[in-house]
């Protein structure tokens, strides 16, 4: 702890990773600063060294990889996700979720996808969609580069602010043509964090659900991947009112330890998990039907 922290601006990702490894607990990565700075201003964090990765070209850009994935650099800001043609064309679910993220235009212009995911915050808006899309992440720690499912990273308590690892890219399989998608976010008022949200992907065949991915957020400490429960109820059937009610009921039942905070009390959050899940799937079904 120091009253006068220092700022490091490494030139390469490797330098940044090596520096972080040498600092043990005193260093913190800063890029857009939208997550970190409020914690510092509130006195929650008092880092000794800020490792500014904002200038690392290796972490920028959105491109297709040779294996056909979309690689999104960790420094990609929300505004780029909202407007980038590759995201709009190949990952419209993610682009849509980015438009619903908290904060105004200024925040969207600074907040990065990396910071959003590393925060591991249950109320944040990008992770549910990326989990529904079964995204992978690539991170660098010391001299080691690790690629793992996003789900594994989100479950790992070593990540988060102050970690020694640097998130480098997010890798996502492009959405298939005709796949229905929706991100449904419920908040108590315009300026509030979400009280419940859900990302859904639905494939329809002849008006019947052929496949479904469903992730529910903001209702529990961890995101809830309800895809298996949804598939068991919905696959092979048309998505009608009865199916929707059964889905809502099933999803709420999966929320065993709901959050209870300024965004609303537990029983309501549990009920809302079912509501946003049903609404997200319904909207995804409608989109798939139009395609």
């Amino acid at each position: 702890m120091s009253l006068y922290p220092s700022l490091a601006r490494p030139r390469t990702l490797a330098d940044a990773a090596a520096l972080l490894a040498s600092l043990s607990s005193g260093g913190v990565v800063i890029a857009g600063g939208q997550e970190l700075m409020p914690s510092i201003n509130a006195g929650v964090l008092a880092p000794e060294v800020y490792v500014d990765i904002g200038g690392l070209a290796e972490l920028r850009g959105i491109a297709e990889t040779p294996e056909g994935l979309l690689a999104i650099g960790a420094l990609t800001v929300h505004r780029e996700l909202q407007t980038h043609p590759l995201v709009t064309a190949k990952l419209p679910l993610l682009g849509h979720a980015a438009t619903r993220a908290g904060g105004g235009r200024q925040v969207h212009n600074r907040g990065t996808i990396g910071g959003n995911l590393v925060a591991q915050h249950p109320l944040y808006d990008l992770a549910p969609s990326l989990l529904a899309l079964e995204a992978e992440v690539e991170w660098v720690k010391g001299s080691e580069t690790v690629r793992q499912p996003l789900a594994a990273m989100l479950a790992d308590s070593r990540h988060g602010l102050g970690s020694e690892a640097i998130l480098a890219r997010v890798l996502v399989v492009p959405m298939a043509e005709g796949l229905g998608f929706a991100y449904e976010k419920l908040k108590a008022s315009g300026g509030a964090y979400g009280s419940a949200n859900a990302a859904a992907l639905v494939k329809l065949t002849n008006g019947r659900v052929a496949a479904v991915r469903l992730v529910v957020g903001a209702v529990a400490e961890r995101l809830l991947d309800a895809s298996a429960a949804a598939a068991a109820l919905l696959v092979g059937r048309p998505f009608d009112a009865a199916a929707g009610a059964a889905l809502a009921h099933a999803v709420s039942a999966l929320v065993t330890a709901p959050l209870s905070d300024a965004q609303g009390p537990g029983p309501w959050r549990q009920a809302m998990a079912g509501v946003v899940a049903r609404r997200a799937v319904a909207a995804a079904v409608q989109r798939a039907g139009r395609a």
């Binding site: 409020p38 509130a42 108590a188 008022s189 315009g190 300026g191 509030a192 964090y193 300024a262």
Partner: peptide, 14 residues
């Protein structure tokens, strides 16, 4: 209630 994250006032959309 310690910040505007907890004390939410009406926005234009409200």
């Amino acid at each position: 209630t310690r910040s505007f994250m907890d004390y939410v006032m009406p926005r234009a959309e409200d």
